[in-house]
């Protein structure tokens, strides 16, 4: 699948800074001074993304939860009639993943990964999703957000058929998509879901950004979940902690995609986080360390860690956490540069 990842948001903030910097002075020393000042700010505000400790492939899945964490798919970008069009190609497939030693699970997924790709666009972009169903059952892609009825993705697309979903990216915030064929619990539970981030035109401040989706696995078709996970694999981030930098602004895009359980919380250890509900505001509002999320609810959570060390994150439904929905941040001490 073709995919072009756009330069970080950061780069475009930098472009803006440079532009404004050049406009600030009329030339000569003034401009240069403003310029270097801005460059320094840029450097000081730059985001340090620490390398993952583990990137090895997992059998049955090309992406790991660590590679998926910051893998934002900006699509293939073209300009049509003066507008930015982002094209995403996805194929519904079936494949197996090893959830733990006892469970090999048959997933229904997009492009061979669970969760599906994290689509990302800026408000007002035109989104075109070319959906090819090669997974046996009828499936569909239903996007949250604002769009006409024909693009609501409720109509089943049969095996072997293609549907092109096309709509405007609006409103800005954290959206999601999932298959809407009944029983939806089974179609989502087997892996047909993902996040769809619509950035506001006024960019959010630079941060180390990550995507976390909580999901459940009903491994024996008893309409209850036996296993849970962040980004597809139970307990993965416990064994492969997410390295982050001390005092760095972290921005989590969190979605609860757990079926069968009405709601779960998201809890972060030894810290408070700021909540931006559904990402619908330019700035977060309230502050807490436990937030309740119903199925399909999603928020932006922002925080930074003052002290180095390892800190857990998990729903505070502790049985659910212990069944796989649990992870660690590894806060690494900032160097004195």
């Amino acid at each position: 699948m073709s995919k072009s990842v756009e330069p970080e948001k950061l780069a475009s903030s930098r472009r803006q800074i440079l532009k404004w910097g050049l406009l600030a002075g009329v030339g000569g020393a003034g401009t240069l001074a403003a310029f270097s000042q801005l460059e320094k700010i840029k450097l000081r505000s730059s985001v340090t993304v620490l390398p993952s400790t583990h990137t090895g492939a997992i059998s049955g899945q090309a992406s790991t939860p660590l590679t998926m964490l910051r893998d934002f798919d900006y699509g293939t970008v073209t300009q049509e009639k003066g507008r930015t069009v982002r094209e995403f190609r996805v194929e519904a497939q079936t494949s197996t993943i090893k959830l733990d030693n006892a469970h090999t699970f048959i997933t229904w997924n997009l492009n061979g990964r669970v969760p599906g790709p994290t689509f990302r666009a800026t408000e007002g972009d035109r989104i075109r999703v070319i959906f090819y169903n090669r997974a046996g059952h009828s499936h569909s892609l239903h996007f949250h957000g604002v769009h006409p009825a024909e693009m609501d993705g409720v109509k089943p697309i049969r095996n072997g058929k293609i549907m092109i979903y096309e709509f405007d990216a609006e409103p800005f915030g954290v959206q999601l998509y999932h298959c809407h064929v009944a029983p939806v619990t089974r179609h989502i539970g087997k892996g047909l879901y993902g996040m769809f981030i619509i950035d506001p035109k006024d960019l959010r401040p630079p941060a180390d950004e990550m995507m976390l989706i909580m999901a459940g696995y009903d491994v024996n078709d008893d309409k209850k979940n036996e296993l849970y996970a962040f980004n597809g694999l139970p307990h993965y981030y416990m064994h492969h902690p997410i390295a982050i930098q001390q005092n760095q602004l972290i921005r989590l895009y969190v979605l609860n995609m757990i079926e069968f359980d009405a709601a779960v919380t998201f809890h972060l250890h030894a810290n408070m986080f700021k909540v931006n509900r559904a990402g619908r505001s330019p700035q977060p509002s309230e502050e807490t360390d436990v937030i309740t999320m119903g199925t399909a609810e999603r928020h932006i959570l922002e925080f930074s860690y003052r002290y180095p060390g390892k800190y857990m994150f998990h729903p505070h439904q502790d049985a659910i956490a212990e069944a796989g929905c649990m992870g660690l941040f590894d806060v690494v001490e900032s160097t004195k540069t």
Binding site: T94, T96, T104, F105, I106, W108, R134, A135, G136, H137, R158, N159, G160, D221
Partner: peptide
């Protein structure tokens, strides 16, 4: 048959028929 083919593939994991539905 094309649909049967995909569904049969979606029934088998680890050399076992793990999804009776498909």
């Amino acid at each position: 048959l094309d649909t049967a083919n995909s569904e049969y593939g979606a029934a088998i994991a680890d050399g076992k028929i793990s999804q009776a539905i498909e």
